[in-house]
Design a protein around this nucleic acid. Structure first.
Length: 880
RNA sequence: GGGUGAUUAGCUCAGUUGGUUAGAGCGCUUGCUCGACACGCAAGAGGUCAGUGGUUCAAAUCCUCUAUCACCCACCA
């Protein structure tokens, strides 16, 4: 230990140190597993950072993700794993395009079409570089120990190559095809959306009951009548039985048209009139009915969400305008039966821009999830994806999400991967007349035109675990680090992202992308509301870091955060944890002071004391429990245990005792426990612990120190005579608390000394040895007398702790009426306890069935309580 | 309609295979510069573990039903 070191400041100054420490870590190279000093066969531990969208700066949800993952990474690095955490960002195709469109629209009042594809993409890159820089800065400030040398972007050149390769391979294997299908169409984004990119929201609307030839039927979308080709009824519906199979003339706003009546089980006879109009081109359900019954399809709404040429005078109107016009015309023709005003139904909206989704038929690229693939031994992607979860090759934490995963997978339809937006991975397909070439590179020769569409953003992010490790090349990284150990992400993208990653990895490598999926919840404000810009209830992570320090912010996101559950957070919580970080600082400051002093007075007592044994025992167990909890993803619980140990046991008891008890062993114990505590704390609060580590060893960095082992403490404890372990410090603690309590109850000035007499029975020797602690640990006792037994004292405050009798001389101060009440209450409490125990122990079934230890425990409790009652009663008699 | 989760102190939440008289943080009350820390120390008040019925020697913990809240999936035209 360097004796010339400057004294530590009075409080932890996060702003002063955090930047320097992070720089030192980065320069050390330890974020990169290649620089770790490890044996050749060290096991790998890898995590890919879920790449944040470059649409916006990071919010507290990202911070929580970074805190959890960095905790796992730092823990495993210290545990001796070849630990890799890969950083990156996501180009977020459609989301980014929307963000830029909104920005341009706001600033320049233009649309992307005014700019053209090339100019627009320039704008996107400009925007992207800005947000990307902010995101990377924010990530560093969280203390994330990511290997920046392996940083990736879902839209950089390497990833572009991987995506093209993937597409071609999947196409060649028959896992990708092009086909005409019903798709979710966002007229604003001008693009298809996958099923789970569509949000559903309940809205009030009108329900129109229209006269429809021989039927009256209810619809919320009368404008689609122009595309109707049938009426469907339930096969068992008696009302319409005779009409099934027949054709009818239906009067409409554009003249009379013919429809066929079909019977289909999807029709709910109890809704409306039990008959529905079928619009095969603009409704998923209707489309399915049409397929089953071979009905013709008539498209009437185009990709702009407007009525098509075939809609006569309504052509060019938006669907909303057309609805109004058509209803007005139908009213005139007497075709409206009546209108329900308050009909509540679910509407479909684009998850990015909120526009109403139009189902339309369109020619698109799809991933075939049901195609049996040779590379998967004749299984489909879907089957294989289900199988790996069933076989527990992939496990979900918490487990309940496994069910959700299965449910989603089992109902998975082919995945539409083409998008009609400009910003995204280009589809590696070229057309010339009727010819088509699918290839990683553009074909030779003239006249080939590349597919104008781009790929769904989840296609490239689905490849993230292996595209970041060098795939398609069979790199060392890929061999060492794939599959990754854990995917840590929000439960809200379980289907959108996690399941896509599983599918993509199974196809590309025939292996899972990760072994465990840890799902965290949402970060909510203190009222349990989702944080959002519009509500103004968001908490800016960088602002909090500036104010309270990164360690406090990290703790606020780890404490009280349990897998799969949402987390409420407030500035007050962060502030409170800042105080705790400061407590760690000051505890360490005190310990360093103590172990750096060379006071010889520490030689007073030789050998370990009860407090030494107690703290060593506690710490030994703590190492095990914390390690166990972290390995089982119980981060909050491990943190809680660390806090209780550090603050309550170590600081409030052991350090206080160390001010009184002087023995040789103290310095060594303090030094060891503090140093190892810093290690245990490091994954939670890396900055303050790293700074303090300098005082322990300024030649090494804590980030690569070895994780503590309990064996070290076991060994010390084994060398201690068992007699030292006979009674616990707990008894002394209880006695001390009761004396302090008596002082508080009677408002004894802190400076005023009191006299105490203790009758300890068989614990006489034990308490006598520890007299000094009882006398001085904020009890301020003048004279203390400890003996086996003696005559009851009068005019004293009386307390019975585990059958140890304590008399505090408080002549003239004690209020005996109050004391009588206190003791009477205590006796009656103990009596009801004794009654309950008696009842339990006299129950034959209990004695027969309960484990022996439990019975023994209960008996001991009973004996103790009885003895206490007797002694308290006896004292009570005396003062009456 | 199907599913999941939550319900424990005024507030936020722990409580992992059922077994001390149910815990913590914040807040609250009272008193304190005691060899680091007022970003602190000490003492204390506060709970029929949502309700109901059951299983068990024993239930906050397992099962039934109910209520309230939140979310997910599907979808009604």
């Amino acid at each position: 230990m360097d004796k010339n070191k400057k004294e530590l400041s009075k409080a932890w100054e996060s702003q002063k140190f955090e930047g320097l420490i992070y720089k030192k870590w980065e320069e050390s190279g330890y974020f990169n597993p290649d620089n770790l000093d490890l044996p050749e066969d060290a096991p790998s531990y890898s995590i890919v950072l879920p790449p944040p969208n470059i649409t916006d700066k990071l919010h507290l949800g990202h911070s929580s993700m970074l805190a959890i993952e960095d905790l796992l990474i730092r823990f495993h690095r210290m545990k001796g794993f070849r630990t890799l955490w890969i950083p990156g960002t996501d180009h977020a195709a459609i989301a980014t395009q929307n963000a830029v469109e909104r920005k341009i629209l706001k600033e320049e009042g233009k649309t992307r079409h005014d700019l053209g594809r090339e100019k627009f993409l320039e704008k996107v890159w400009e925007f992207l570089r800005e947000t990307q820089a902010t995101i990377l800065m924010q990530t560093r400030r969280m203390g994330a120990s990511l290997d920046w040398s392996r940083e990736a972007f879902t839209f950089d050149d390497e990833r572009k190559g991987a995506v093209r390769k993937m597409f071609v391979e999947m196409y060649d294997a028959g896992a990708i095809y092009r086909g005409e299908r019903m798709v979710n169409w966002c007229p604003r984004c001008h693009s298809t959306l996958a099923d789970d990119e569509v949000d559903h929201e309940e809205k009030k609307a009108k329900l129109y009951w229209i006269k429809y030839g021989p039927f009256v039927l209810a619809t919320s979308r009368p404008e689609t009548k122009l595309g109707d080709t049938a009426v469907a009824v339930h096969p068992d519906d008696e009302r319409y039985k005779d009409m099934v199979g027949k054709e009818y003339d239906i009067p409409g706003v554009l003249g009379t048209f013919k429809i066929k009546v079909v019977a289909d089980k999807v029709v709910d006879p109890s809704f409306g009139s039990g008959a529905i109009k079928v619009t095969p081109a603009h409704s998923f359900v209707d489309n399915e009915i049409a397929m089953r019954h071979g009905l013709p399809m008539k498209q009437i709404i185009n990709e702009d969400g407007r009525m098509m040429e075939n809609c006569g005078k309504y052509a060019g109107m938006t669907t909303a305008e057309a609805r109004e016009a058509i209803v007005a015309d139908m009213e005139k023709m007497g075709l409206i039966d009546h209108i329900d005003e308050d009909y509540v139904h679910n509407t479909s909206q684009c998850y990015r821009c909120g526009s109403v989704i139009e189902p339309i038929p369109s020619k698109q690229w799809f991933v075939d999830v049901d195609k049996k693939l040779d590379r998967l031994n004749g299984k489909s992607l879907k089957e294989k994806a289900i199988e790996v979860a069933k076989s527990k090759e992939i496990t979900f934490i918490p487990d309940r999400f496994t069910k959700r995963y299965f449910h989603w997978m089992e109902n998975l339809h082919d995945w539409c991967i083409s998008r009609q937006i400009w910003f995204g991975h280009e589809i590696p397909v070229w057309y010339k007349d009727s010819e088509i070439i699918v290839s990683e590179t553009a074909p030779e020769g003239e006249g080939w035109i590349q597919d104008a569409d781009t790929l769904d953003t989840w296609f490239s992010s689905g490849m993230w675990t292996f595209s970041t490790l060098g795939w398609p090349d069979n790199t060392d990284d890929l061999k060492k680090f794939h599959p990754t150990q854990v995917l840590e992400t929000g439960y809200d993208i379980l289907t959108l992202w996690v399941s896509r990653m599983i599918i993509m990895s199974l196809f590309a490598l025939q292996e899972v992308p990760f072994k465990n999926v840890y799902l965290h919840g949402l970060v909510l404000d203190k009222h349990g509301k989702k944080m959002s810009k519009s509500k103004g209830n968001g908490i800016n992570p960088v602002e909090m870091i500036d104010k309270y320090g990164t360690d406090a912010v990290r703790l606020s996101l780890l404490v009280g955060n349990t897998p799969g559950n949402d987390l409420r957070i407030s500035e007050e919580k962060i502030e409170g944890l800042k105080k705790f970080v400061n407590k760690i600082w000051n505890i360490s400051r005190f310990v360093f002071q103590k172990i750096n002093s060379k006071e010889t007075e520490y030689q007073e007592i030789t050998g370990y004391t009860i407090s030494d044994v107690w703290i060593l025992e506690k710490f030994k167990n703590l190492i095990d429990e914390v390690t166990d909890d972290i390995e089982n993803y119980n981060f909050s619980q491990a943190g809680e245990k660390l806090r209780v140990f550090t603050w309550d046991d170590f600081a409030d008891w052991y350090l206080e005792i160390s001010k009184i008890e002087k023995n040789q062993q103290k310095q060594e114990i303090l030094k060891n426990i503090l140093a190892d505590s810093l290690k245990l704390w490091h994954p939670y609060v890396p900055f303050v612990t790293e700074e303090l580590w300098k005082e322990v060893d300024d030649t090494s960095l804590l980030i690569v120190e070895k994780w503590p082992k309990k064996e070290k403490y076991e060994k010390i404890l084994q060398g201690i005579h068992p007699k030292k372990r006979e009674y616990s410090l707990l008894l002394i603690q209880k006695i001390i608390v009761s004396i302090r309590n008596a002082r508080a109850q009677y408002n004894i000035q802190p400076t005023q000394k009191i006299d105490v007499t203790i009758f300890a029975g068989e614990k006489f020797e034990f308490l006598n040895q520890n007299e000094n602690i009882i006398k001085n640990l904020r009890t301020n006792i003048g004279n203390i007398s400890i003996s086996e037994k003696g005559a009851e004292l009068k005019n004293a405050y009386y307390e019975n702790i585990e059958d140890v009798e304590i008399y505090i001389a408080l002549e003239g101060v004690v209020d005996f009426k109050k004391e009588q009440e206190r003791m009477t209450k205590e006796i009656s409490q103990k009596e009801s306890f004794v009654n309950a125990l008696n009842k339990k122990l006299s129950n034959e079934k209990f004695v027969e069935n309960a484990p022996k230890e439990i019975i023994q425990q209960e008996k001991e409790k009973l004996e103790l309580a009885k003895a206490q009652i007797e002694k308290i009663s006896s004292f009570l008699q005396k003062i009456k």
